[in-house]
Design a protein around this nucleic acid. Structure first.
Lengths: 105, 105
DNA sequence: CATTATGGTAAGTCATGACTTACCAATTAA
DNA sequence: TTAATTGGTAAGTCATGACTTACCATAATG
């Protein structure tokens, strides 16, 4: 459910570009739009999707909307990857052990 | 480019389900298909996408195709997340410092 | 060799979603 | 209050991609 939102949010190149812009801190929607070859409304929609995925926070200040990366959302992805990573390494180790033990031919 | 393939591969629920099945080790295409409410050809196509993303290895043994998770592919995702994570934490710290220093009102 | 098991490929359908332009809302400045 | 700035929403278009069924290929088995 949450993974769904996170992965499909980051699957789009424009949204990943937006996300990348936020590595160093917050940016306004207009600034984000200027860094992309698409319209501002498109960027606005992308930001909405990123926000729903929990990857981004939007803070309205005056007539500007400041968008920033949200550590909590990223943590979900991080933990998924770490968990999968350790499971796979475990499975690999088990497989190698199995192959070694099977050498009775 | 690679991120594109990885994130869009994992954005699909069926493909994530396949990927999940591989946490504990390899599975044949038929076994994967049985665990999903979709046809075997659909699974075959999903496996192809996962393989192109580098997330999965396919090994043909006799008339079976054994699919397994590929640590190298996962590592790419892992490093991306870790790198982004550290950048964002850095930006947050810088922002807090900036706000503290600005308290001259 | 004929049959069964296993799986990849082709072609076509259908839904989703990434855009666009047009419009509206709200905040700041003249 | 009138402009200008900034950005969200609506509606419509178009491409992509996730499925299906039908088919073909190869490997094990009788």
């Amino acid at each position: 459910m949450t993974y769904q939102l996170i992965f499909s949010a980051l699957a789009d190149p424009s949204r990943r570009h937006v996300f990348e812009q936020l590595r160093g801190g917050s940016r306004s929607v207009g600034e984000l739009a200027q860094s992309l070859p698409i319209s501002r409304p498109a960027v606005s929609q992308h930001v909405k999707v990123l926000a729903q995925a929990g990857l981004v926070d939007v803070q309205v200040r005056g007539r500007r909307s400041e968008v920033s990366a949200r550590p909590d959302g990223l943590a979900v992805l991080r933990e998924y990857v770490e968990s999968y990573w350790s499971d796979v390494l475990g499975a690999f180790e088990a497989e190698i052990t199995r192959q070694r033990d099977e050498r009775h031919d």
